[in-house]
Design a protein around this nucleic acid. Structure first.
Lengths: 142, 142
DNA sequence: CACCCTACTCGACAATGCAAGGTACCTGGC
DNA sequence: GCCAGGTACCTTGCATTGTCGAGTAGGGTG
């Protein structure tokens, strides 16, 4: 992804990604950070991930267990609880249906800039017919 | 989209959508709310939209002008400034590249749940090879 | 010992959507 | 006149969550 992203866009997404990655494979915090980096999300720092993990654990969505390491400090492994699985399913649906709306809007053509904008304060041009919203299943192909 | 969405997911997205819709066509606040609703975003209330519009105007990204209405109250029309156009371009790129990461992760298959989890505290299974991150251009088709 | 890597914690902060409460201008019915 | 409904707008306090910056601790190596 772009080297810098708007932090606001990540809100709600980070915890969803964490649940998802940990549903795929149990991991410890540092490893999760690395997996996020491998996905291209290089701007996400440990200072963001650990509190998010702690929050999900506190909410009962993640189960954490401390495992002594043979060399180096102990590792805290996480995986989703059933409540976490449910949150993941709901959050996934939520994100997918939002993206199904946002993506087509962002990629469709912009109209040409208006020429020689009239300086009058007249009302803008009449409302054109509304576009039909895409269905939530429109963007599931990959 | 789903009747209820996680409000956090909308952070950063709402202002992006506002810039986009207003770049396509100058509109007044109430009309923008209706256009968002037509897109399927029925959970977005005016209490969210007006402060966002005011914020974008204060930041110099939107230009607002009050137009008296023939019947009913005056309408405040908005359209993006050049700074707003730039913010839209950057925000669009940011969202698209984030979505290019998030979407494939959310739709790929989950592994089967592990059977009869061993109750021992042994370290989890060895780390499998990492998956290659998708490119940012992977999800531009529609 | 110092340094580096691994692995984790924590508190203050900023940003932004949301809920709730309101205001004002019209029109139509009683 | 009053009231209800619709249009159109405004505002404030709040909750949430990622970010930043600062740290801690366990090992191995020179």
């Amino acid at each position: 992804m772009a080297p810098t992203h708007d932090p606001q866009l990540l809100k709600g997404v980070l915890s969803l990604l964490l649940l998802r990655l940990l549903a795929e494979r149990e991991s410890y915090g540092y490893e999760v950070v690395q997996r996020l980096r491998e996905l291209g999300l290089t701007d996400i720092s440990e200072g963001s991930v650990y509190p998010a993990l702690a929050r999900l654990e506190r909410e009962g969505r993640l189960h954490g267990r401390l495992v002594a390491s043979r060399s180096g400090p102990a590792r805290k492994y996480y995986r989703p609880t059933p409540a976490g699985d449910q949150a993941l399913a709901q959050g996934t649906e939520s994100w997918l249906s939002l993206a199904a709306v946002v993506h087509p809007v962002l990629v469709r053509r912009l109209p040409d800039p208006p020429t020689a904008d009239p300086a009058t304060a007249g009302p803008p041009r009449a409302t054109p017919p509304t576009v039909t919203p895409p269905t939530a299943t429109e963007d599931t192909g990959r």
